[in-house]
């Protein structure tokens, strides 16, 4: 393991209000004066593992346990069922749209916020954060208030015969709302930390704004961007509350994976329900693989 692991990423992510960061550097080996007695170390590790086991690992294990209770065949059958496939397709579509929209917005917002000083900047950041703390129930409700047939825009929507809620656009909007901060908040602190020197140099050498962005800024933030995408994607696929309000629950049409899970559960099809749920839990493993790849790449870059 190379010790020159000073990439910009972890540095820049420091102390910002992000829900999640990638820890990319290899473990630092502390000196003898720099660590605790062995007994304390073991106690802390045990405590940490016990807590994680009880609060996170066990629920996940129980999901897989329930999913495979009747064996592989039941598991695969549950996933191959047409309504399940249609839910998976819809979820993938919604997640793809959300990720693309959030990446575009995240990069634009991060550019404006991180590369320039202007008044009201921290208010703007707070507004971007806001969806983190809005109850999913409320996040769905607001779109009903806007686009429902009793809503503010009802007259226009009816005149044009445009359907937003209880159709794909409503599901996408609700998902966009809840995933709104993920990419932007991952990028902003990093781009702030990196400063503007490289961009200024590029511009003064005659590069255009766009080519500065693509040749200088983007390569510097690519890993943070990727991690933001992973988180945004996970949240987009897993969103339940907000989407449940605007979906209409029409089988094979507007049911996403989390809604399909609920339906199966309510039909006492526990194995099928947990089988679909386990697919979403597997997403975390995708994150694991991606992180491992990131670390490998960074180590390569450093050497």
């Amino acid at each position: 393991m190379s010790s020159t692991s000073h990439s910009a990423l972890p540095q820049a992510l420091a102390s910002e209000g992000l829900p999640a960061h990638v820890e990319v550097r290899p473990l630092r080996h502390p000196g003898p004066t720099n660590t605790e007695p062995k007994a304390v170390r073991i106690a802390i590790i045990t405590l940490a593992l016990a807590f994680l086991a009880l609060c996170i690992a066990l629920p996940v294990v129980s999901v897989f346990y329930e999913a495979f209770k009747r064996g592989w065949l039941a598991y695969v059958t549950a996933l191959a069922e047409p309504d399940a496939l249609s839910a998976i397709r819809l979820t993938l579509l919604v997640a793809a749209i959300s990720v693309i929209a959030n990446v575009t917005f995240g990069l634009i917002a991060a550019w404006a916020i991180a590369k320039f000083e202007f008044p009201g900047r921290s208010l703007l950041i707070t507004l971007i954060d806001l969806p983190f703390s809005v109850s999913p129930v409320v996040a769905g409700l607001v779109y009903v208030l806007l686009f429902g047939s009793q809503g503010l825009f009802a007259a226009y929507l009816q005149a044009w015969d445009i359907k937003i809620i209880f159709a794909l656009p409503g599901i996408v909007l609700a998902t966009l709302f809840v995933t709104f901060p993920f990419v932007a908040r991952e990028l902003i602190p990093l781009m702030q930390e990196q400063g503007t020197a490289e961009e200024e140099a590029a511009v003064s050498l005659g590069a255009s704004g766009l080519s500065t962005f693509f040749r200088v800024t983007l390569p510097n933030v690519k890993w943070a961007l990727l991690y933001g995408v992973l988180l945004c994607n996970a949240r987009a696929m897993g969103e339940f509350g907000a989407v449940s309000v605007v979906s209409g629950h029409v089988r094979g049409l507007t049911n996403t994976m989390p809604l399909h899970i609920e339906i199966l559960y309510n039909e006492y099809q526990f194995v099928a329900s947990f089988a679909v749920a386990s697919l979403l839990a597997l997403l975390a493993l995708v994150t694991l693989v991606a992180k491992t790849l990131l670390e490998a790449r960074l180590a390569e870059d450093a050497s």
Partner: peptide, 20 residues
């Protein structure tokens, strides 16, 4: 024939709000 199921009140609300 498509089916949508949920709590009765929630389903009624969805129809009121535009579920066709």
């Amino acid at each position: 024939v498509r089916q949508s199921h949920g709590g009765s009140g929630k389903q009624a609300r969805s129809v009121i709000d535009g579920l066709e």
